[in-house]
Design a protein around this nucleic acid. Structure first.
Lengths: 348, 348
DNA sequence: CTGTTAGCGCATTCAG
DNA sequence: CTGAATGCGCTAACAG
């Protein structure tokens, strides 16, 4: 039998109320003697407060839910480490749910989290134009923050994002320095806000270019290595001999690496014939050959900030800002050729 | 205000008990008419059962805890996907905790999970010779299963593991086919059961060898790419010119990849001069150059089985077997030279 | 087939 | 400074 506050109250010869007071560190209303006696009794009887009971009584769980598409995508683990970092000090628990990019599963997960009465939810949603999962949260008035991916119908929603548009612009501007005649933009699922924004960034860079015109060919994949490989494969297969482009910008590193594989198989030299830039900066990117130039997202910080924001909302405080945008940085490695005037990228 | 069974009981003109009965799908004891009426009422009033209240009443939470060293290690995400796969159908929640290889954090996480009154815990523990975290679980008689890593003082503990010893033996036997004079064994933290077992596997293979004697040099790292790189760096720096070994077996892929980097930097050709074999088969392994030959762990299955076992324990059933050992397979890629008599590895 | 009565373990009034 | 009473939302006997 687990020991309860009733047990220790009896043992201490006081009432449950008093025990509850010391359990919650209420300074007012408990004599110093009794407090100490109760504390040692709690230790001796190995008392573990029951989260469920406290939750029922207070309406707070000290746990939050996280819904992401796929923990096996190397971008997400660091987000989680960031979230945990912010949660640890508060001894909050984290429910993890993978939605697999399936909006139905996503809604189901939200429903289950709601049943568990989590205090809040962090959502990295699959589809940018569906918000019925948010309706649920709203209706139950459970605080939530968007992470990484936004939802278009809720522009002013609390959330933490990387500046995807700017990141993509940085990448393409960097690529344009070598004046490629044709640029391949290998985008992810365009249903995702991040992908839409990265496309905008690409267009920004193109619009701003001063030198000879560059044309863009758009292809797309599903964020997997294979999809990037396939996309480039078709592109290269079609052109027959030499590739009809000099640069590839992929919306994530995994697809960029897939692209590199296709290029290599076709005997295209990177970066001499074709330059490649990715997005995310996952661990693999510096390990492939040649090491991948990429737009690094501050994943850990994004996770930490999102949890901080959510905790703020849970406390009922108005946060300093409801939307936090973190700046990506360009990490120049060896899938791009050395630039003459090496400006600082991603510095501001 | 959230709607409760009391609300819907009042609306239906029945008692809470009846509502509770249909909520829990008790076939006995509710008329078909009332059942339907109550169900539609629940939908109309958007009733969400309160997990905490049910938990308090039943002593069951429908959630379990998972404690792993580091979600950012690419080996773990797949384990999690497996666990979720087994949990999904039961609408169980999963609390994720990263221990960072720190036994203190690990204990603290277990404590918090206990407070949350999880129904069970899956533990991939950091240290094989400490079990105070298990004491906690035992004392509260919360079911738990070990995953991937075992704990020596509890040999008969319920758990799911890969056959690490056999995996290592397979790798080294494969390496020995080319009769290397010296083999480098790059092991992980020897405090881990998996590492001890892999060392045993290496020794098994050595003991079984029929041809010319091979000597082994043991070095170790912390499972990170950098540690593997450093370890080989010292080894190569010391020998000056050509490496004094022809084969490297690393206890995980990340270190193997680090080793490859050091070798490459020293101008050593892989696999012509030195062969490399890793362990785990993470995604990166097939993407590096040359693609890494490695011992693949059935991570997804391990996760799924561990959750299945835990659920079984939670239900109070005696599981078919308390310890499940899954077989690894050798995935031959290009960091090893082609073999003459290509036997089937890891087939049984 | 259905209602009544007790808790589950704790927090929180309001008295004393 | 402390205790008694009440309720959080639901389940579980036990009656009818």
């Amino acid at each position: 039998m687990k020991t309860t506050i009733a047990d220790i109250a009896r043992a201490a010869g006081v009432s449950k109320a008093t025990v509850s007071r010391v359990l919650n560190d209420r300074i007012e209303g408990v004599g110093n003697g009794t407090r100490l006696r109760i504390k040692s009794l709690m230790a001796a009887l190995e008392f573990e407060p029951c989260g469920m009971a406290r939750g029922l009584a207070t309406g707070r769980n000290r746990s939050i839910g996280l819904v992401i598409p796929d923990i096996a995508d190397p971008f997400f683990p660091l987000l989680i480490r960031g979230i945990e970092d912010a949660l640890r000090s508060q001894s909050y628990g984290l429910f993890l749910c993978d939605s697999d990019g399936d909006i139905t599963k996503e809604k189901e997960h939200v429903r289950v989290l709601l049943e568990k009465r989590v205090d809040g939810v962090i959502l990295s949603s699959t589809i940018s134009d569906s918000d019925s999962q948010l309706d649920l949260l709203d209706k139950r008035s459970v605080p939530y923050v968007l992470l990484d991916r936004m939802i278009e119908s809720r522009p002013s929603m609390a959330g933490v994002f990387a500046d995807n548009r700017r990141g993509a612009r940085m990448a393409v501007e960097f690529l344009l320095e070598m004046a490629p005649r044709r640029l391949v933009f290998l985008n992810g699922p365009e249903g995702l806000s991040v992908c839409k924004l990265r496309r905008c960034g690409v267009e920004d860079a193109l619009a701003l270019q001063t030198r000879a015109a560059t044309t863009v060919v758009h292809v797309s994949g599903d964020y997997s290595v294979e999809s990037g490989e396939r996309a480039l494969e078709t592109l290269l297969g079609a052109t027959g001999e030499k590739p009809g482009f000099e640069a590839v910008f992929a919306a994530n590193d995994r697809m960029a690496i897939g692209a590199m594989r296709a290029l290599r198989r076709h005997g295209v030299r990177i970066p001499q014939e074709v330059e490649v830039v990715g997005f995310d900066d996952i661990e693999t990117s510096r390990l492939v050959e040649p090491p991948l130039t990429t737009v690094a997202q501050p994943a850990f910080a994004m996770g930490r900030e999102s949890a901080g924001l959510l905790l703020c909302l849970i406390e009922g405080q108005e946060p300093p800002q409801r939307t936090i945008v973190l700046e990506p940085t360009l990490v120049v490695r060896e899938t791009t050729r050395p630039r003459e005037n090496r400006r600082q990228y991603g510095q501001f």
